[in-house]
Design a protein around this nucleic acid. Structure first.
Lengths: 347, 347
DNA sequence: GATTTGTGCGCAATCGATTGCATATAAGGA
DNA sequence: TCCTTATATGCAATCGATTGCGCACAAATC
């Protein structure tokens, strides 16, 4: 089965010229016929279409792209593609774009600003028709994005955005989600709610912190800054943060983490100390990572409606391309997140 | 901040002709200078390179692609991109390709054969230089893949492959992984080990079943066909399968599932019945989905080395492109999976 | 000094498709 | 019959970069 095969070279080079030769007409006519140009007779149209089928003609999209100045490619840059949230957004984008005959190029920034610049430049070199980005944690200098806009290339931010730049964007209502989650904790009778957050210069984390504070204030609960811990909110950070709270002897009866990873880390440590969840401590995360469903108890969290977010972002790209490539009127779509209440906060 | 901006149209159209005009030479010379052609004087090379920098020239990759017949694009088709395994493979591919100045187009087949054909044809239309596929569950007709090979377009299968076609491929040693997991269960003293499998016409599942059987045989344990359950192995299937075993009163003290989802489903049901894991029943999955680390007890599983798999697949693509695009000598790389022993099988 | 060799660069075709501007033929109008 | 107006198609430029061939001019060889 694995032996050498005799294989012919039919590197399928059929072009409109082949069709033209076959029919004794010119490539112009073939091109027009295939594009259903009104000035071509029905008769030759039929002839051309039949001939195209017969020799299995497929237009060379590269040539089309060069001539038309449109590559029908969309570039995506995300920190990493193998994170459930990002891959789900990509899924949404791909699905929407695919239906419209657009293809999607992905590239990863690894949350590194230099790498992010590189990949975006690479996408521009590839002549993508538009770019969709979830910016990295380090991103500060926005001139690159400004120049993308100045060149009339549709640019869409999603999830992680920057408000200093008038760029069309799709986000979820982070503040409201955090508010609702915190309120839920309060309704469940938790009163000393800690919060895990990340660098709050990143908009989404600032927003979530805000929602948390709002809910507490609404319930007349005094804010305790020592209960607000900043970290990268990965697994290990969650462990450390909760350990810190325990070591300090901080009285807390719930934790709301801006990341699911952080909360799982906390859960692991608490279980070691035989803390009962949710009876003694309630735990809520953010992101609806698949694993939150399978921990025990299952974790309360926020679903970021990632696939719809991808679809909206893609839709926005097409809108921009057609109507406002220079983003004179950037749009902002705010999706409603879904609060997922599970056992970890139900006592 | 969101008001209208005055934005100039610098749709950056700098071409080699602009450089040529600026310097009073021809585009040919500019092209050669930029490509470091030996017949161009060092002096003009310097002039050209400086001028290129000055006007911020970037080669139009579309034009380059048309002229050279190489798009520097790699197409990937996976069933769905938002599954940890696939997105991790994509991550590996992207990382490797990116280092070599190649870009990656992704498309999803949704495990639907028609869709799979469509996306592969779309990738061919986009003139990708190569295609990497993890075939869908339905895929039967392989003529499309054969024709890709016949056209001299490097094709690489990964994970889900088909052995009827001599295509270069990267897989893991599924049989061995299953064998080792089963052996581990046996070593832990489990004797009545059930197995969840999927349609065994899909190679990977057949292999895993085989490894399971081998280990049992090695330990002189009689195979009980009633302990081998076939399903789609999603969460719900896992629940049903284990319920089925319970209803039938089958005596089993361990389950090895070919999918992590299946085993989590089983775990949920068993917990409802207050079955002690791992004391009464040991549980092992396959795939090392992120959630397996966070269940309690944490699940024993098999890591499919997805990122390395992506890198190997990408490496294979470049090899094929350079040396054997028509795959007269298809290669097969078998990666060693990593057995991840966790609490769910340690009693 | 005549001839060969080498250096540096331009001309024009090419990749495949699209499109503005003719042109040729047929059909319609005066 | 002559002229206008459609209708159907061809010609050639274009998108931006690459490359075989050729042509100057200079340097080297005899």
């Amino acid at each position: 089965m694995w032996e050498t095969h005799i294989i012919m070279n039919n590197k399928s080079k059929t072009t409109i010229h082949d069709i033209a030769n076959k029919l004794g007409i010119t490539a112009s006519t073939v091109s027009r016929a295939l594009n259903n140009h009104p000035r071509i007779s029905e008769n030759t149209k039929k002839l051309v279409i039949d001939a195209a089928k017969e020799i299995n003609y497929k237009p060379n999209q590269i040539a089309v792209a060069l001539r038309n100045g449109r590559s029908k490619l969309i570039g995506i840059t995300v920190p990493t593609v193998n994170r459930n949230f990002f891959s789900s957004v990509v899924r949404g984008i791909e699905a929407y774009a695919n239906d419209r005959d657009y293809k999607v190029i992905i590239s990863q920034s690894y949350d590194d600003y230099e790498k992010e610049k590189e990949t975006i430049n690479a996408l521009l070199d590839a002549r993508v028709d538009g770019i969709m980005v979830s910016i990295g944690k380090q991103t500060k200098d926005l001139s690159l994005f400004q120049s993308v806009i100045n060149r009339g290339i549709p640019l869409v931010f999603f999830d992680r955005v920057n408000h200093e730049l008038p760029v069309s964007q799709v986000v979820i209502n982070d503040r409201k989600a955090a508010y609702l989650i915190t309120k839920h904790l309060l309704q469940q009778g938790y009163r000393n709610i800690a919060h895990f957050t990340s660098a709050t210069k990143i908009n989404i984390y600032a927003e979530r912190l805000q929602g948390y504070l709002e809910a507490l204030t609404e319930y007349g609960i005094e804010i305790n800054p020592e209960l607000i811990l900043e970290s990268n909110m990965q697994l290990e950070d969650g462990r450390k943060s909760v350990q810190q709270l325990l070591d300090k002897g901080m009285g807390f009866d719930a934790i709301f983490s801006s990341s699911d990873y952080g909360i799982v880390g906390a859960m692991q440590v608490l279980r070691k100390y035989n803390v009962k969840i949710p009876q003694e401590v309630g735990l809520a995360g953010f992101g609806n990572e698949p694993f939150t469903e399978f921990t025990s108890p299952a974790l309360t969290t926020v679903d970021q409606v990632s696939i719809p977010m991808g679809e909206e972002a893609a839709k926005m790209f097409f809108d921009l391309m057609e109507k406002d490539p220079y983003q004179k009127n950037p749009k902002k779509i705010v999706l409603e997140p879904k609060i997922i209440i599970r056992e970890s906060t139900l006592r």
